[in-house]
Design a protein around this nucleic acid. Structure first.
Length: 210
DNA sequence: CTAGTGATGTACT
DNA sequence: GTACATCACTAGC
């Protein structure tokens, strides 16, 4: 299997992101065809990246070799996963944002009872992790050497046209069009501008709970 | 369809 | 203490 594109220079992580579209990720009995991704670089080049301010305990995986998962928890209850790209020592990763369930459909439906349509089973980064049953324990595992719970396989058919646009939910770098998706695919998550969290009044005033 | 918000844990300042 | 690469649900067009 040729995974060399994963190790392209960190500055070309957008190329790796485009290549990743249409690839299939299998984990825990469910296979998903990737339809939407976002590229993140690090070290000053990309203020939206978790690695922008340097290496920390959380983002250390992004500085490692390509082909491993960077899984993090967000908003206390959701998991998102990236595939690490670029050379070792330089931070770069591609966030997996959405996909189409192509195998293990019944299992996927069981894991996503809130989904009304099959196209909504994995139409978002946290939904994708839910159908694949991937969580923090998969952090830093490889998707290319078979040692981890998830594996990556090439597209089974040619992918269609690729569209690009600003990344979702990030508060900075809205002018960098590093979100890529397969044009017209119904499983792509709908774009929503980031809505700032407004703190509750009682919390802002420092009042204790009733 | 859009806009608003509660739930919830952790890393980092 | 605060921000966060989110989702599901509600209310109101």
């Amino acid at each position: 299997m040729d995974y060399s594109w994963l190790s392209l220079p960190a500055t070309a992580v957008d190329t790796a992101a485009r290549e990743l579209l249409g690839w299939r990720m299998t984990a825990n009995g469910v296979t998903v065809r990737l339809t939407e991704v976002e590229a993140y670089s690090g070290l000053g080049a990309d203020p939206a990246s978790h690695a922008h301010r340097g290496r920390t305990a959380r983002n250390a995986v992004m500085f490692g070799p390509a082909g491993r998962l960077y899984v993090y928890q967000i908003y206390g209850m959701h998991f998102c996963a990236n595939i690490v790209c670029g050379e070792e020592g330089r931070a770069a990763a591609v966030l997996l944002r959405a996909g189409e369930v192509v195998d293990g459909l019944e299992t996927a439906r069981g894991r996503r009872p809130a989904a009304r349509k099959d196209s909504d089973l994995a139409a978002g980064p946290a939904k994708l992790m839910q159908v694949l049953a991937v969580n923090r324990s998969a952090n830093a595992t490889s998707v290319i050497d078979g040692t981890g719970p998830a594996t990556l396989a090439p597209p089974s058919s040619p992918r269609g046209a690729i569209s690009s646009g600003p990344r979702v939910g990030v508060t900075s770098a809205h002018d960098v069009p590093w979100r890529f998706w397969i044009a017209g695919d119904p499983t792509v998550s709908t774009y929503r501008r980031h809505t700032p969290r407004s703190r509750k009044v009682s919390e802002a005033a420092g009042e204790p709970a009733p």
